[in-house]
Design a protein around this nucleic acid. Structure first.
Length: 264
DNA sequence: ATGGCCATCGCGGATGGA
């Protein structure tokens, strides 16, 4: 089975891309970020026709996340936002995913971590608080659910290998020690960076700026991640970045990351 | 080079993204 995360930068604009991608890849579980629409605008019928059941958590203009599962799977125990962390932004949701009637259930958390704008800014402080709260919640979730996936747009590079110009971008947003320490702290809970479990081409990125032909020059960063618990690590057989959708006209600035798990 | 692109809101140009 395949699980994926994709920041689609507006579900309204990118719905055709998403439907094409779902038809081509038939991924079983998808976490989407940056829907940029309110709950009433979520294209539930189009996704049902494409063969997916969804749960969503929208917001006007900004943010918004969703989880999709390919039928006959099911989503249950949906949680929106981090319990005990009041937040007026729709950035994270969890669900228990039954990928097939007789398959083992997975706990899936889809996250859109705040951008942070610049170190020292109010938005950076919010990013740090938000990640602190996320870690506390993920620790609880992991204790309850040994088969756990935490995936999404983290807006953080793990290390310099995730940055096209690590010297030029030293200590800038997405690349600071404080941000990277948060990713390490999440991993220290017992999570593994799924992409790094497998050999990857050098300069494997998930986001490229729209400007300056950044994608054509592969001037990007890896800021979208899939973290998996030890039980799922034992079933992981492949993980890759799907650059094809970034090559289309009017693309999202992010590419999907896809994890393949062995069936039990 | 104090930028370059894109989406949103809303109909000009500011804001946020990364």
């Amino acid at each position: 089975m395949q699980l994926a995360t994709w920041n689609i930068n507006s579900l309204s604009v990118r719905l055709p891309h998403l439907l094409d991608w779902l038809a081509a890849r038939a991924v079983d579980v998808v976490a989407l970020q940056e829907l940029k629409l309110t709950d009433d605008k979520f294209p539930v019928q189009a996704l049902e026709r494409a063969g997916y059941t969804a749960a969503w958590f929208g917001q006007k203009t900004y943010n918004g996340v969703a989880l999709l599962v390919r039928v006959p799977g099911a989503l249950s125990a949906v949680q929106r936002n981090i319990p005990g962390f009041p937040d007026d932004q729709a950035r994270v949701m969890a669900a228990t995913v039954q990928p097939a009637p007789n398959a083992a259930a997975l706990r899936v958390i889809g996250a859109y971590v705040p951008n942070g704008q610049a170190p020292g800014s109010d938005k950076f402080a919010y990013k740090m608080r938000w990640l602190e709260a996320l870690r506390g919640w993920v620790a609880q979730e992991l204790a309850r659910h040994p088969r756990l996936v935490l995936m999404g747009d983290f807006n953080i590079t793990v290390d310099d290998d995730d940055v096209w110009d690590p010297e030029g971008l030293r200590d800038t947003i997405h690349c600071t020690r404080e941000e990277r320490a948060h990713l390490q702290a999440l991993k220290d809970l017992g999570l593994y960076d799924a992409l790094r479990l497998f050999p990857q081409p050098p300069k494997s990125f998930t986001w490229w700026d729209y400007r300056q032909l950044a994608f054509a020059k592969n001037r990007g960063m890896r800021i979208d991640h899939i973290f998996i618990s030890d039980e799922l690590k034992n079933r992981a057989i492949a993980c890759c970045i799907d650059r094809e959708m970034r090559k289309r006209t009017q693309p999202s600035d992010h590419a999907p990351v896809v994890l393949t798990l062995a069936d039990e």
